Computed example of a mutant assay.
Amino acid sequence: MLDLNATSLANPSTFILIGIPGLEYLHIWISIPFCSMYVVALIGNSVILFLIKTETALHEPMFYFLSMLAITDLILSTSTLPKMLGIFWFNYHQINFHACLTQMFFIHAFSGVESGLLVAMALDRYVAICNPLRHSSILTNAVVGQVGIVALLRGLVLMLPHPFLVKRWSYCQTNVVPHTYCEHMAVVKLACADISINSLYSLAVIILIVGTDVTCIFLSYVQILHTVFSLPSKDARLKTLSTCGSHVCVILTFYIPALFSFLTHRFSRHIPRHTHILLANMYLLVPPMLNPIIYGVRTKQIREYLQIFHWSKLFSIRT
């Protein structure tokens, strides 16, 4: 039994993650789709990384950004799923205080990194379609690396204050976190203090990152659509738009669950807690699972190399 009335926890050595409140009896069943999504994310993103590394024809800006996205997805899913499955399968609810802060930092920081990489990929599509003759001279390997570093540093720097703000508070009532992972606001709400600074900073960072990134992506696609619809033939327009299809799908799978989770968490008091938590888990699990599938299905170069790899493996087995 979990002690929900623990006291004298000003400096708790551990937190207790209870999983999905109200659905504890379904933890085993819930773990099946969650584990399946994690396995698909691991395999899919690893295959993407392997193909991009081994096939020199894929050494282009779009695929470099895709490899960065795959690494980010692996970090995001691995930051949450192993501990979550420990709760579901083995009732291992404890998490060290500093491990909790580390998990919190990685989840929020790399969510910001992923958003930045989606902007970088929109930039790549913009240059490729609106200024194709200068694509290779604008997005050189050095520029691609610098853009990736900026996306990484922005996510790390903006999210760095979160664990320090959480650490400064006293937790004098309970150390039980009603969540499957150390989500920032779920932990902060346990503090015996005025947490408005945490709430305001978190809101400001989300607005800054999501507002800036969505605006940049929107403006990029306005220019892309303007260029596409100025093309003379319908076939040319459709072919050019198809090159953006994968990126648009990835944008939707990332921002829609994230926005829905954020809005329901902060502004809806009537949605059950377990619904909030399931949405928060979907936000971290669905994009890492779908991104490699979307790019594998919709990107011609990756489809071709997957087919070549598949047939070469079959041939080697038969011979």
Rank of each mutant, 00 (worst) to 15 (best):
L306C: 07
T253D: 03
H265K: 04
L279K: 04
K239E: 14
F254Q: 07
H247M: 06
Q301N: 07
H265P: 00
E304A: 07
T240I: 06
H274S: 05
G296H: 13
V286W: 06
T253H: 09
G245H: 12
H226G: 03
L241C: 05
K234Y: 11
S233H: 12
T240P: 06
Y255M: 01
K239S: 10
A236D: 15
K300F: 06
N291Q: 12
N291T: 15
A236R: 11
F229I: 01
Y283H: 03
R298T: 02
R273M: 11
R273D: 04
D235P: 00
Q301L: 10
V228L: 05
K234N: 06
Y305E: 12
A280N: 07
M282T: 13
H274N: 09
R303N: 06
K239W: 13
F254A: 03
L279G: 02
Q301R: 15
K239M: 11
V297F: 15
R273N: 08
I277V: 15
R303P: 00
L285Q: 09
V248G: 01
A280I: 11
H274V: 06
I277P: 03
S230V: 00
T227R: 14
L278K: 04
Y255S: 00
I251D: 05
S230C: 08
F229Y: 15
H270T: 15
M289V: 14
V248N: 01
S242T: 05
P232N: 03
I277E: 08
T275Q: 05
H270K: 11
F229D: 01
R273H: 06
L278V: 15
L259Y: 07
A280Q: 13
Q307I: 02
S242E: 11
F267K: 04
F254L: 06
T227Q: 14
S261C: 09
E304P: 00
R237L: 04
M282H: 04
R237V: 04
G296I: 08
I308D: 08
R303D: 00
P257F: 14
T264S: 04
P232Q: 06
A236C: 07
Y295H: 11
F254Y: 10
S268P: 01
P292M: 13
S230T: 06
N291M: 08
F229W: 13
S242M: 11
V286K: 01
A236F: 09
R298H: 05
I308Y: 10
E304C: 05
N281M: 12
H247K: 00
L284K: 08
R266P: 01
